[in-house]
Design a protein around this nucleic acid. Structure first.
Lengths: 222, 222
DNA sequence: CAGCTTTAGCTAATGCTCGTAGCTTTGCGG
DNA sequence: CCGCAAAGCTACGAGCATTAGCTAAAGCTG
């Protein structure tokens, strides 16, 4: 992971065998992260232990440190990965949907579905259950994109005449984030085995969304 | 607890001293719980360790087990205590306030204030950050009272004509719990040092509450 | 007041965790 | 084929929850 890329193709670009070693290493890193997600899903976010990961990988615990410098570094990689997946899920749900409120709602429901299907990662992302873990600035990157995705969708809704101009604001972004995180936190705490659309709380989300045109009314023609 | 040389038992030897031993024991239990809350406030809910509690109490770790059978039992006692405090805070905020929506809002804002002032306990109560800890049925008792407090306040609001009859429902209770927990979970995750009324999220709570009359409109005179 | 019982503390020890140090093997790359 | 870095190992240290067993004191009871 150091002497790479400085000197591009001397001869013909080696197809894939450039660093067969590096590729295997990357595969192992991948495997560790997959196992880590499994362990968190079973034992909770704070239940992640490198010893358990090593056990499932068929390796002695100290060997994990050849790939990650610490448990927190594993959390950081998972944090980054989770944010990317979460963002992808939202974007995928928006394609082909009318911009503005419909797209926003599709994105948020997709986010909710992703969170319930990936509870451990979602808690790591949005609830900070590990007090000693502070995500690195680097891992925080996609979070900015998330905010702007919301902000843009709200602006679209204003342009489309679905919401009043006040909805094109940070405050409105905070408001919808409160709505989605309220639904999710209640579901996480009280309904361990429920998917989006099921249980007491997730069906309330459309109700909450329906208040947006009330809170940000489009100005009358007068 | 240990340096208790001052025995005021001379002047009043057996005032209520039927079980002076049990009383001292109760005092120690109290002291352990107070220290445990302090530790959680500093190191997070999952950062609670009996070894640290013992250190601050001036005692060897195994001695804690004379008072609590396990770390989880300490969590359980804290859970129960937190629920009682939380409920008391809400009830105290309601006295002298007009029943119905005003009382409900006062109660919920007090709950928010309590949660931000007692973040560790609040997270233990409402976010379950310790996966291996499942509150005992016994410790869950006050939770029922909490639900009924909300339910009653909503019924009062219906009677007072502030909300439509549909607000006298479990669904409405779930809805307000989503609102308050959304505000709190966002504040916990993103604004570590903020009190009620400060920050991006807690000022949104009145806005959310203002949607209740829209979601549960009183039937028109027709 | 004497004695017995309960209790609160201790030390020692087990088995788990994260993480470090240092050695050995393996296998890729030149 | 040789050299060297990567990837594994064992051993170790510190900290945790928890158990077992001992000691001494506190207090109820005859």
């Amino acid at each position: 992971m150091r002497t790479e890329g400085t000197t591009p193709a001397r001869t013909a670009p080696p197809p894939a065998g450039l660093d067969r070693r590096a590729r295997r290493r990357q595969e192992t890193i991948e495997e560790i992260l997959v196992i880590a997600v499994e362990v968190m899903a079973e034992d909770g976010v704070t239940g992640l232990s490198l010893a358990e990961v090593a056990r499932r990988l068929g390796v002695q615990p100290p060997s994990i440190y050849k790939y990650f410098p610490s448990l927190m570094a594993v959390y950081d990689a998972l944090f980054r990965r989770g944010q990317v997946e979460h963002l992808d899920a939202m974007r995928a749900a928006m394609v082909g949907v009318e911009p503005g409120l419909p797209a926003l709602r599709a994105a948020l429901e997709a986010a909710g579905g992703w969170a319930l299907a990936n509870r451990a990662l979602a808690q790591l992302l949005f609830w900070r259950p590990v007090p000693s873990f502070v995500p690195s600035d680097d891992a925080f990157g996609p979070s900015v994109e998330l905010f702007e995705l919301h902000r843009t969708a709200l602006a679209d809704a204003v342009v489309a005449g679905q919401l009043g101009p006040a909805a094109d604001s940070d405050e409105a972004v905070w408001l919808i984030s409160v709505m989605i995180s309220g639904v999710l936190s209640q579901t996480f705490a009280n309904e361990p085995d429920v998917g989006w659309g099921q249980g007491c709380f997730t069906p309330l989300f459309p109700t909450l969304m329906s208040t947006l045109p009330v809170l940000y009314p489009v100005p009358g023609p007068g």
